[in-house]
Design a protein around this nucleic acid. Structure first.
Lengths: 366, 366
DNA sequence: AGCAGAAAGGGAAACGCTTTCTATAATCCC
DNA sequence: GGGATTATAGAAAGCGTTTCCCTTTCTGCT
């Protein structure tokens, strides 16, 4: 009882039981307990059983910090998003988290709110917490900032583009395909005047979306006057403002594509408030396919970018990177497909054939 | 160089620098470095400066795991919410996180999705990660489950009600006040037939909201027939379904209160699809005042429960609990006020004075 | 001058675990 | 049956910190 290191001692939080308590209870050494817990095959099955029983009895939970300290792996992943209040991201977080947990990782979440200062301190905090890897799913980030912080080989996954360092993976979203489908869908309905409300052009991904739009239009020989390209910031409010700008033009475009769904929802609101009817007066297409999109009035036609795909590629690439046995896993790119989901916010432009014939407007009672 | 423990040694992740590297560089012992970092006043200012310089030069970041191991504090807080995809919760998470970070805590987030199994494993994971405290902001949880897991004195904060254990704090949301304001607002407009769409009644908080509604109605001598009380589950989908049930009744109530905003938004959709006009045909009141509420069509009248209040009470109570020097901080209750925010989804019932006179319907162009 | 007490830095233990190394007992082969 | 091999368990060395305790050097007082 006077051993210098007796178990269940001094000032630990009451109820905390350590590996020593289990060892004592089972009458084995702590090494054996550790091996049992980690299912190392060299431990005698009978002994193992005794250990498990002891674990059960004393209610032992291995201390993750201690584990992390000795193994060098924290089994935590960082997840950085742009804005947690944009509904796209909670959906992404949910997927990411459940995949990560299934692989035995915990997730530390951070939202940059588009603020470089916040972003930097966020990343620093994550590094200090010894996360095993970070997914930066912000659709645009100051790269030098990252580069500065992560000179060491550190598992990192970006969306669209990242610095060219070892261990850095990139999820390449195929904006071109989904957006082309959207443009072609509108063109097929007869639209010629299609406007685009972009995200913040200081960032990479919003730019890529806009480029994809312009390219798709060019392919069809459709001109896009500069006043039909308005910049927003991916929030609903900015969608409202942007749409109001378009409404103020002499000639309203007959269709609008938006860089994300929240923008499209804002656009819908602006149109509704000014008694423009969607899709009769103007068609609207979003991007992301968030859950809310199908519940809009009318249900929103949008380009789907599956968070499932995004999340699973992110988790998978990080895991591969982390668990790779020093075999330098080459920087790898993971393609993320996109595709158009046609709902009821798009129809023939006014003046062509009656819209109702071709697409349900969704405004009648069921 | 052949010392058994030379710095920047073997298989640590390249770039990782420990307290020893700093000590060597500054020509002091690791104890001094530690004291410097922790700003213990007994270290000579000149020496401290040398140490800080060395820290800067080698790029030292203290290892949080090691710190946690020895100090017994992980400086992490758990935050459990019902459903991260319900927009109320990201708003709450954001507030909670920024307050926690300001206090030097990191946040581990979990979403139960109303699944007791998930909840249990979630809580277990958090305990295993040695979080210093957990905020269970789920508006309803199986209490025995918690009781079982948290027999030890462990800082925990609940919404509405929790088991009566030491170190357990409760945020008492004053549903009565906000809901009474809502009911009285409707009654003052002339409504007599007011329906209520509740949340899942298996949980505590939805129940409290419903009770508050019934009580407020009773105070005014207003009867609530059973068919005007319909149960949902706080999702938009359930709001749609619930509203459809009300619409199918022989006589539509003239107003509906909802247990949360997502339900109200669902109700709005159901009404819109069946060509009922809000607020002319029927008034709708929500609860929570999520960001989206003001962007509904019409902007939603709702009872505000400030996430700021909720988050700051949660963080503050946990912090107090954690940092209390064993002085048994009595179980404390923290009141959270609620209040009605009148927007444009409520008006005189049809048949009374013209609604437009008294309340802007918000449907005209600005 | 001599000593008490303070100031300040270093040595080393401890936190709870993993893992290597070593010791013992059991098994094998000729 | 004896030496060599193979299973299996324990001892102990860390992992990177904090902190207790001790030593050394001063300062001040009689």
């Amino acid at each position: 009882m006077s051993s210098p290191r007796n178990n269940s001692s001094d000032r630990r939080r009451p109820g905390t039981v350590s590996i020593r308590d289990v060892a004592q209870r089972a009458g084995v050494s702590i090494a054996t307990v550790s091996r049992t817990v980690n299912r190392i095959p060299t431990v005698n099955p009978e002994l193992a059983e005794r250990v498990w029983k002891a674990i059960e009895e004393v209610g032992y939970l291995p201390n993750t910090q201690a584990r992390a300290l000795v193994s060098g792996r924290s089994h935590m992943l960082g997840l950085i998003v742009s804005e947690i209040t944009n509904p796209f991201f909670p959906e992404l977080i949910q997927e990411f988290e459940s995949l990560a947990v299934a692989q035995g990782y915990e997730v530390l979440i951070g939202s940059t709110n588009y603020d470089p200062v916040r972003t930097e301190s966020l990343l620093r905090r994550l590094l200090q917490r010894n996360v095993d890897g970070v997914a930066i799913m912000t659709f645009g980030i100051e790269e030098d900032l990252v580069q500065k912080l992560v000179e060491r080989e550190f598992p990192l996954v970006f969306v669209d583009a990242g610095p060219d360092l070892p261990n850095i993976q990139v999820l390449k979203v195929d904006y071109a395909e989904g957006i082309r489908q959207g443009v072609q869908h509108l063109a097929a309905l007869g639209h010629r005047n299609i406007a685009f409300i972009s995200g913040p052009l200081s960032q990479r991904s919003p730019n890529a979306r806009r480029e994809a739009f312009l390219k798709s239009m060019a392919e069809l020989g459709l001109r896009v006057p500069p006043e039909h390209l308005v910049e927003g910031n991916h929030t609903m409010e900015s969608g409202i403002v942007a749409m109001e700008k378009l409404i103020a033009l002499e000639t309203l475009p007959t269709a609008v594509m938006c860089s994300n769904d929240m923008t499209a929802i804002g656009a819908l609101h602006a149109l509704y408030r000014t008694t423009h009817k969607v899709p009769e007066d103007i068609s609207v297409v979003g991007f992301d396919d968030i859950h809310l999109a199908q519940f809009m009035l009318p249900p929103l036609t949008t380009v789907q970018m599956s968070c499932k795909d995004l999340a699973s590629a992110a988790v998978e690439s990080l895991r591969a990177c982390i668990e790779a046995d020093q075999s330098k896993s080459q920087r790898k790119e993971w393609p993320i497909p996109t595709r158009l989901v046609v709902r009821q916010s798009t129809a023939f432009p006014r003046g062509s054939l009656p819209a109702r014939v071709a697409t349900a407007s969704g405004r009648q009672s069921a």
